[in-house]
Amino acid sequence: MAQGVFVICEQQDGAFRKISYEAVSEGRRQADSLNTDLTALVLGGGVTEMAADLEKFGPDKILVADDPALTDYSTEAYTTVCTHAIKSRDPMVIITGASTQGKDLSARLAARLDAGLAMDCVAIRIENDQLIYTRPMFGGKILAEINIIGTPHIVAIRSNVMAITESSMTCTIDQLDIQVDEPKTKVIDKKLESGDKVELTEADVIVSGGRGTGGDYGAIEELAALLNGAVGASRSAVDEGWRPHSDQVGQTGKVVSPNLYVACGISGAIQHLAGMSTSKNIVAINKDSEAPIFSKADFGVAGDLFEVIPEIIKEVKKIKE
């Protein structure tokens, strides 16, 4: 009978992505509630040494698939290796991040294993011995609670939602014996941004600007940098060409759940709210005190962003000193 929790971890160029720690921590919690083991699976080229970084989040076992052919993510190669690991161990639940890679991999894997998938899941719980997965639909207008029939269950968790917790378990690290065929897709070029830019979906703080910025993101960028955060944008700002598409938050942009989301000069259209309504704390700064964004915010400032943000920067600097 299928048992055990499996977590597929994600790394890039020698570092685990934050979502991997979230996934292993959540995996530990679920393995404890199910009274079963947690296995973390690490795939990549030259990843054997870094695999031990996961130990503090509590896996019972770490499985490493280390092969030059796995250096760059490839749907085919990763699906094949994961399938091999899963088939030989028959886990009940497989958790991965709902990152760009995790979405691609979990969906392909679900089809290969003919398994049910809870995509972009924000909560997992057990009720009457049944696992229940909560996932937003319709741009977050609805929260669906779903059951998965049969095993394994595949669950891709939303970034920045599940807590990272450490645990004092000891674990074993094993190498997975794998063979990777020449894949039909290959990465022919890769451009990574410089190290200090915070990825929007992983950021604890996001300062977002909309049409109200008139294209001037100076103060927004300064505040974001001061808070170690990232800059986001509404679609109007992207359409104006002020910000790249990768900064867009919303139903046709990124879905983010930072600890703090500061919406500046954003009216609060339903499609924008779809991307940020699960943020823990929402601040809106808008010169129109009737703007719909205020109905979805926790704290509001009715004022001109060009006057308010520089003052916020001053206050934050005072705290930091």
Binding site: I142, E145, I146, F294, D298, V301, D304, K314
Partner: peptide, 29 residues
């Protein structure tokens, strides 16, 4: 179906917004 909807809910409402007031931008900030 391998994925069965047990129930659909609306997301919980946020508490009503707390407007930060003050005479000028400095005070509000």
């Amino acid at each position: 179906r391998k994925v069965k909807v047990a129930v659909l809910n609306f997301p919980p409402d946020r508490k009503t917004v707390k407007m930060v007031d003050g005479g000028n931008p400095g005070e509000m900030a």
